[in-house]
Design a binder for these strands. Sequence first.
RNA 1: GCCGAAGUGGCGAAAUGGCAGACGCACAGCACUCAAAAUGCUGCGAGAGCAAUCUCAUGUGGGUUCAACUCCCACCUUCGGCACCA
Length: 986
Amino acid sequence: MQTYDHKKIEKKWQKVWEKKKLFKALDPKKTAAKKTAKATLPAKKFYALIEFPYPSGDGLHVGHIRSNTAMDIISHKRRREGYDVLYPIGWDAFGLPTENYAIKTGIQPAIVTKTNTDNFRRQLKSLGFSFDWDREINTTDPKYYKWTQWIFLRLLDAGLAYKKRMTINWCPKDLIGLANEEVIDGKCERCGTAVEKREKEQWMLAITKYADRLHKDLDAVDYLEQIKTQQRNWIGRSEGVNFKCKIKDLGITVEMYNSVPQTYCAETFTVIAPEHPLVEKLVKGTSYEKPVLELVAKIKQKKLENKFDIDTDLEGIFTGRYIENYAGLGRDLPIWVASYALADYGSGMVNCSAHDERDYKFAKKYSIPLHEVAEPLAVTVGGDDAFRHDMPIVERNAVVCIVKHWAEDKYLCVSLKGVKWQGFVVGGIEKGEEPSVAGVREIAEETGYTSAHFEKILGGTIHAKFYQVAKGQNRFAHFTPALFKLKNGDRREITEEEKNVHESMSWLTAAEVDAFLTHEGMKLVWDRVVGRSKPAVKNGILIEPKEFKGREWSEVRNDIIEHLVHKGIATRAVNYKLRDWVFSRQRYWGEPIPVVHCDKCGIVPVPVKDLPVKLPKVKNYKPTETGESPLAAIDSWVNTKCPKCKGKAKRETDTMPNWAGSSWYYLRYTDAKNKKEFAAADKLKFWTPVDWYNGGMEHTTLHLLYSRFWHKFLFDQKLVPTNEPYAKRTSHGLILAKGGEKMSKSKGNVVNPDGIVEAVGADALRLYEMFMGPFDQAIAWDENGIVGTRRFIERVWKLREKVALDTKKSKAGVLQEVAGNTTSAEADKLVHRTIKKVSEDIETMHFNTAVSALMIAVNEMEKMPTISQDHYGIILTILAPFAPHVADELWASMGNKKSIHTEPWPVFDPAKIADANITIPVQINGKTRTRFEFPATDIAGMTDAQAEAYVKEKALNLDGIKDKVYSNNIKKVIYVKGRLINFVIG
RNA sequence: GCCGAAGUGGCGAAAUGGCAGACGCACAGCACUCAAAAUGCUGCGAGAGCAAUCUCAUGUGGGUUCAACUCCCACCUUCGGCACCA
């Protein structure tokens, strides 16, 4: 027997498979033809899909191999179960890294992409994946993106693509629009210049029109619950009401969504002085700057300061929370600023979540009722008693002052935004609770305020105790309550433990803020309170309105909605968090958006016959100084004729985002070379939906949502036969670098699989990646374990010597025909149990335990003097999907002419896996003391009661049991049929 | 901050509410060898004991149960996503 030479074997079999086109997916017509000719080919299909890789310069990542091997195993199994399998591969090659590389080096992105895909293809082939390479696609191929552009035109035609003014990140030094990823701490990643906001018209896709279906249809697909939950959260459906708020003096009506009952119970309203410097600062550079400033002018002109009011019969509290990611402001805005944002972006943009149940419960638990705070800052506004909250915005030298009556937020709380309090002072908060810690420490330098400031302000008169509620990012938590008493707090040195707490957020009382600001020479801005002062909720029980008095508000939610609707205050509404998709990029390396701008005709789509609109070659890949894509600089390309009026027109210079090409690629695989259509209807009908789609956890929201959206649109256009693209979706965990960090070129911790394939072989690497840990969990890369799977392969190889080859040629896999071989019941049991375990584990993606089962089988077989050809053959056939090369080699060495990958998948025989003996653990008070074994035949004909009596009697006579258990001290006997017996003694 | 996931030996990890640590790595001893490597055999959570055996142990604190890694509540820590990275 030769020694195991992985290099020779792997190369050999890869060639054989490719030559015989062993893994080619057969299209419907051919299938039908073959079926009549041979009558063996199945009509049942299986479409296995992995996310097509982005061919980066780093080369193949070990994480790609994890996902690809898993679906490869499943594909192999399905083929051998008689399915016609489609397992395709391609390249998602448009994207920022390639473009940035081009900017730096001047090398054309198309050339970089060619080099990278060639490398990826070589690497993937070296791993022996059973892809159908004839269907390889590339999103940057004009033959492919022609159809991406075509789909865009359909969207445009259907009114789902539109233009809108938006802000983008802009680096004033590099004169380039930046992706979010390129902005670090508000600065440009490359040059460190502070990033500015710029206005730009952007193409949008109205994915929100599909929000309802994207949400609802999740019920009908077989996705991991985790994925469904994430998608649902992302879409963010909630049912509530729209309130109409009229600002009387200004004649403005604002409609705001709220998820109800708390809103109804609260009575205050947050406003801000129009002359406040904050106003301008907050809105400057934003798309709602204009209306807000207009409003400010209007207020000033009307001399309405301090007077504008809200319709009080609404009894609503509104605090507009403007979502940071979008506006780039990251703070709560006063309502009327927010309302403009709302009008601008639609109802999905503003979210009054501060009042939801969660926050309420949180507040209830952690807040100090106002009356327990030593000196509540009582103020009088319009004759009513109220409490003042001052919200300083430190980095802007400004304070928003809020005054509230008793309301659901009767807990005094004020937030300091933009301040990283590094464990300033910490104290207990709940009533009667002793302060766990206290002390003073420097406030983060960035605030410019040191503890000395506070010592000065607070020392002597007020001792502050802060409670660190949230360790987290530097965000505003509006109704997160607070935090500290003012009375006689002790100060202690801060402990080591506390010193380790970073970036905590703390809250100050109004009194302290007031003192602090006065000291700093700042003034409090005016405030205004509207509404009536009645406590509405007490301990979670409603007091007002009368109709619901005494009830838990969370229980009467729907009744309150009804009530509000009935009173005509509000209308029922469904709210989604989902926002429309910003579809344009001011970049070169993407699909050109196929429209032209004509002075006469406006936006005109490029006729389908003129597609694709090809990307021209350019010299400089940097975006232009005006914020347009580099395409704008190529006059010969930009200047064109209007397809409608034949007059002068200019091409759209924006390109599509990366998500475009990946939103429909799985459809193209079904008919990758079609020149007339994006895919032929009969092929789509045969192959779609994708039966099993596996990919990264990081794609469970965006990519999945975008492609589901496109698919649903295409379904509505009667272009695809199914409502959902993927029947089943699973996710794999990331493979991290050794320290648990993400692998990245910049950190220099990327593992190149080439060296491993060279050293131990693709089979060992594939086995290792399946064995290293649970498939769905993130795992740190550790090369040391590979020797284990390599040794395992060598043991399988060596085991070949024990196989009795003198028996006549048998058909392994067909278990009924085993007769004639030397077999034993024990060996049968082992092999059949392994078939069962491996088959089940593949279906549930528990690949680590599947490999372990194979290892156990081999360990056991090593102990046997000889192994039958069938038993060895079966082990090889179930090992084959994991280690395809060595399995085929050994299979051939047994005299088999056909590839192991065409063998039927073995089926286990339940009769052969049954145990002859039953082992029963014996417990005393739930703790296992001993166990005993008896032949299964002993209790074979017994009733359950008889069997129990039999086991009980045997167990009671065991050493170590009989001396501890007497019939008089047994309280209870628990017998779990065939599993264990437990004596409860007292 | 919001959403999601995870926490078990020196390490990667197994365990339908029913024998905690399968399988693998590392390590130690032995065999083979002039020697080393490779390979094979044995041992391998912690503590006590000559031993049989006993006690403790699945992030922390409670709870449910005859029985909890598993279910419930609260907390701590780590990781992932958050809309222009893909």
